[in-house]
């Protein structure tokens, strides 16, 4: 009984130690910065297309729903305000993080898990190269850097989607749309609030992925489990942390 409850706690503790180990490995070196940028390209830039497509459609559907709901009160011209607020504060950061978990988190976990299964992580340790510093840290930092940028791109595309639907399809007045957005949505609170969240989400997803990759059993099934766990656990954590951060900072 007690051992069953102890295990998740022990795992959480090990994951925490792993995070500290990563943070302790940060050095102001060109090599590390270079590798971080390379990883930011691999996990970040390559997630760009899917983020942009999803952002665009989320913006359109938000505008559609908002117009339908607001039209009942004769307030359809407030659509940009509703879309903007909900997007910048919540939907942008959360959906980007969830997409990032599926697109990049899985790749990180599978890659590290496979490196472990083929003895490459072992080989590094034996060459006196710290695999946490060399493999995990750049991917973690890459998540930290690229998710906020992806979030900004997601939100921009969503606004575009809302514009296309609200102005292009529904024929709302463009001037009203933009002026409501400009006056109603605040850069510091709404936009930056979301960006800060997405920094946390980025670290959370890439850190979770690196942890599951490193703790994967060195078998095919082990790598598969690590990949699944990455998506499931990081998605749950993103939503939980989102609620906690939102309730503390607003």
């Amino acid at each position: 009984m007690s051992a069953r409850w102890l295990e998740p706690v022990a795992t959480a503790g090990r994951a925490g130690l792993f995070t500290l180990q990563m943070l302790a490995a940060i050095r102001p070196s060109m090599k590390q910065a270079g590798e971080t940028l390379r990883q930011a390209y691999l996990v970040g830039a390559r997630s760009l297309i899917i983020i942009m497509i999803c952002g665009f459609f989320v913006g359109m559907v938000l505008a559609l729903q908002a117009i339908n709901a607001l039209a009942q009160f004769g307030a359809a011209d407030q659509v940009s305000l509703l879309v903007g607020k909900s997007l910048f504060r919540e939907l942008g950061p959360v959906l980007t993080a969830l997409l990032f978990a599926g697109r990049a988190g899985t790749a990180i976990a599978a890659e590290i898990g496979l490196m472990k299964a083929t003895g490459q992580i072992d080989a590094m340790e034996l060459m006196a190269i710290d695999p946490v510093e060399r493999v995990a840290l750049p991917r973690f930092l890459a998540g930290l850097i690229s998710v906020p940028l992806l979030t900004a791109m997601f939100s921009a595309m969503a606004i575009l989607g809302a514009v296309v639907f609200a102005i292009g399809v529904m024929g709302l007045d463009a001037g009203v749309f933009w002026s409501k957005l400009q006056t109603g949505v605040r850069f510091g609170e709404d936009f930056m609030g979301g960006i800060w969240k997405s920094v946390a989400f980025g670290g959370l997803v890439s850190g979770t992925a690196a942890w599951y990759g490193f703790s994967a059993r060195p078998t095919g099934a082990g790598v598969a489990t690590a990949t699944t766990n990455t998506v499931v656990i990081s998605s749950v954590l993103v939503l939980v942390i989102d609620f906690i951060m939102t309730s503390f900072f607003t």
Binding site: M115, T118, G119, Q120, D122, A123, L126
Partner: peptide, 12 residues
């Protein structure tokens, strides 16, 4: 200390 692992374990 050099260590030649079982399957070589080259960085793929």
């Amino acid at each position: 200390l050099g260590f030649l692992l079982q399957n070589g374990a080259l960085f793929t």
